[in-house]
Amino acid sequence: MNHSKRHGEILRLLQEEGTITIAALAEKLGVSLETVRRDVKPLTNDGSVLKMHGAISLPSLAGEAPFERRMRENAEAKRAIARLVATTIQDGDSVMLDTGTTTSFLARELLGHRRLTVITNSSDIARTLATVNGNKVYMAGGELRSDSGAAFGASAIEFVSRFTVTHSVLSVGAVDAAIGIMDYNLDEAEFARMVLTRGARTVVVTDHTKFGRHGLVKVCDFKDFQELYTDHLPPRDVAAALEEAGVRVIVANGLREAAA
Rank of each mutant, 00 (worst) to 15 (best):
V95M: 05
R162D: 01
S48N: 07
H167L: 01
V132R: 08
G134R: 07
D224Y: 09
H53T: 11
A24R: 15
K51D: 04
A154P: 00
E73S: 12
T120D: 11
A150T: 11
T120P: 10
E9A: 15
M194Y: 01
L106K: 09
Q15V: 14
A107Q: 01
V31Y: 01
H167V: 02
N45I: 12
I157P: 00
T131K: 09
S104G: 04
G47W: 07
R69M: 14
A192R: 04
L84M: 14
A174V: 10
G142F: 05
A151P: 01
A177T: 03
V172S: 04
I89M: 07
N2E: 05
K51A: 14
T209S: 15
S57F: 10
L129G: 00
F163V: 07
K5E: 06
G180H: 03
L186D: 07
T87R: 13
V118C: 10
I81L: 02
L233F: 07
T209A: 11
V40W: 05
E227W: 07
L233D: 00
V219I: 15
S161M: 13
F159H: 04
M96N: 03
D147K: 15
Y184A: 01
V40T: 08
A177K: 09
A23Q: 13
K136V: 08
I119Y: 00
